[in-house]
Write a protein that binds this DNA or RNA. Structure first.
Length: 153
DNA sequence: GCCAACGTTGGC
DNA sequence: GCCAACGTTGGC
């Protein structure tokens, strides 16, 4: 799951009182469908920092709730307000996530160096989805790299 | 700030 | 249902 750290970073989650946060603001149908139809409580997620100086994986979070209507779609003051959404017929969904652990930053640049990840959806050409599935083999590979390689600084 | 690659909108 | 115009994402 991608988040702009200037909005919500892994440190924001780590610093939150319950070390958890609502994942709001998804406004893409494919990403919504992954969240609503595929994610389940207990699933683990790579927390990816996007649109920043060093984009990449910055931590691991766990899904702790089923998808529920994203409250920001009903809030006229929110940048995520959707006038076509109603409480009876919500368009957009959120999940709650909690911190599992911060990791070293595994940059996009580094991710692209691993042939084992050449088919990863996140790395696909032109991919803009803020939420994309990670194959079990990809997950294991990245987790191993995160554990075995120390950050340069 | 640029721009490629998408996704969405709306006229027809 | 097509598709041009427009808007957004996100790396660089």
């Amino acid at each position: 799951m991608k988040s702009e750290p200037s909005d919500v970073s892994i440190d924001d989650v780590a610093g939150a009182s319950l070390r958890q946060t609502c994942w709001y603001g998804v406004r893409n149908y494919q990403a919504r469908n992954f969240m609503r139809d595929v994610m389940r409580a207990g699933d683990l997620v790579f927390f990816y920092h996007s649109s920043c100086a060093e984009p990449g994986i910055a931590g691991i979070v766990e899904i702790i709730s089923a998808a529920y209507p994203d409250p920001t779609q009903f809030d006229p003051k929110s940048r995520y307000y959707d006038p076509k959404a109603t409480v009876e017929n919500p368009r957009w969904f959120s999940v709650d996530v909690k911190l599992v652990r911060k990791t070293r930053l595994m940059s996009l640049k580094e991710l692209r160096t691993y042939s084992e990840l050449s088919d990863m959806r996140l790395l696909a050409r032109g991919n803009r989805l803020s939420i994309s599935p990670v194959e079990p083999g990809e997950w294991r590979f990245i987790e191993k790299k995160l554990d075995s390689t120390m950050a340069a600084a």
